[in-house]
């Protein structure tokens, strides 16, 4: 590829970054100490008995979340329509602008190729 060769000619593929001396050697110990400290500082969660008022509030919050999920689902369904006209070929992606391409990548992540691992990952890890 012509453009790729141009970049290669200018800068090659060398890594110009480096780390402080001993960084990787000490990383694992530092991390495991941090994990141990976190585990020690975690206390068992107290058992809370909800009053009828707080119970009602919790159900209301659940209803709001459910409504948002439905709205989100509708948005993705409409999004699916927007992209369904694109046959997923390299050429069709080539014609997209940066913004459209980023949107298409988000779309694929959101509803195109979601598997069980991702669902459990997003439920437990994602912020």
């Amino acid at each position: 590829m012509e453009n790729e060769e141009l970049i290669s000619k200018y800068v090659g593929q060398d890594n110009p970054f480096r780390t402080p001396d001993g960084y990787f050697e000490s990383f694992t110990d530092r991390l495991m100490q941090r994990i141990q400290q976190q585990e020690q500082s975690e206390k068992p969660a107290p058992v809370i008995t909800l009053s009828p008022w707080r119970r009602a509030m919790r159900w209301s919050a659940a209803a709001v979340v459910a409504a948002l999920c439905i709205a989100g689902g509708t948005y993705l369904y409409v999004g699916a329509d927007r992209f369904s006209s694109l046959a997923r070929t390299e050429q069709s992606y080539e014609n997209l602008s940066d913004e459209q391409l980023d949107e298409a990548l988000d779309y694929e992540i959101a509803c195109g190729l979601v598997d069980n691992n991702k669902i459990s990952y997003y439920l437990t890890v994602a912020e």
Binding site: R88, A104, L105, L113
Partner: peptide, 13 residues
């Protein structure tokens, strides 16, 4: 990354 090869190729180009 959970995206199609086509989208990745286009992004790279």
């Amino acid at each position: 990354l959970g995206t199609s090869v086509g989208a990745l190729k286009a992004s790279y180009h």
